[in-house]
Amino acid sequence: SPAAPPPALPPYFTKGSIIQLADGELKKVEELRTEDFIQSAEISSDLKIDSSTVERIEDGPRPGIALIQFAVGEHRAQVSVEVRVEYPFFVFGQGWSSCCPDRTSQLFDLPCSKLSVGDVCISLTLRELK
């Protein structure tokens, strides 16, 4: 089957983008801190933050695409995602990180670190409704 086009680049990672936290506060994307995500998830009725540890980073099926394997949540469930190498993830206590931080900085002007095996990223799951 023909290769699917890479996912489009979202606009909100561009430096200066305005992000609204769960309490209504507005921040620029480059100013977000780990606490902003944690507090927003605490307020949220349907979203829960999970810790997702990077277990493996491989070249994807096409140039510019990476395959990242995470261990998600307390049960360390294995999840693989295919992303553009410039796609930034938020690492606990560190901030925005991608497989190719130079390219992330070039495209989004967003300060970014190198995503590495062992990094713990912020991810979301839906809360179980009781």
């Binding site: 909100y12 992000i19 609204q20 936290l21 995500f37 927003s40 933050i49 999970d50 799951t125």
Partner: peptide
């Protein structure tokens, strides 16, 4: 004159990936 410009505001959760594992049936 400065023309008013609408600025996009994105919700915080747009920036965080959902990495929920698939649930076994």
């Amino acid at each position: 004159n400065v023309e008013p410009r609408s600025v996009a505001v994105f919700p915080w959760h747009s920036l965080v990936p959902f990495l929920a594992p698939s649930q076994p049936d």
